[in-house]
């Protein structure tokens, strides 16, 4: 499967997750967010950027509890909590935010 954006073809898995981490760009993220009915704001970017940095360091997406802990450390408790993350990514940060961040789909029943 794939999608086209600005004349370039991007390979995805059957659910629209990017096949290649390096294909990711802000435009690609905006495009994927659109397919998920998510409108990217500064708050959304903070999470996506964190996920990409974390993945690049550890080659795995963080557990949600680690995401919350790190968000709390970086942006304070009003952003480091479950409710806030689900408000931004209603289908669940584990799936939706990872997808927009260009990470592979977590291989679990998430």
């Amino acid at each position: 499967m794939s999608f086209e954006l600005n004349g370039k073809t991007y390979a995805t898995d059957e659910e629209g997750y990017l096949q290649n981490l390096d294909d990711w760009s802000k435009d690609v993220a905006e495009y994927i967010a659109g397919t998920e009915d998510v409108e990217m704001t500064e708050n959304h970017w903070e999470i996506v950027n964190f996920l990409r940095e974390y993945y690049q360091e550890y080659q795995i997406a963080p557990m949600i509890k680690i995401l919350i802990k790190e968000m709390k450390k970086k942006f304070g408790p009003e952003k480091g909590n479950n409710k806030y993350l689900y408000e931004l990514y209603p289908a669940g940060p584990a799936k939706q935010a990872c997808k927009i961040a260009g990470l592979p789909k977590p291989t679990g029943c998430v």
Partner: peptide, 21 residues
Amino acid sequence: PGSLHKGAVTCAEKGNHIGVP
């Protein structure tokens, strides 16, 4: 289909499907 095979391999190797450390 999907990541089902990859998850099973990850579980056999790392003890859980997602690869949580």
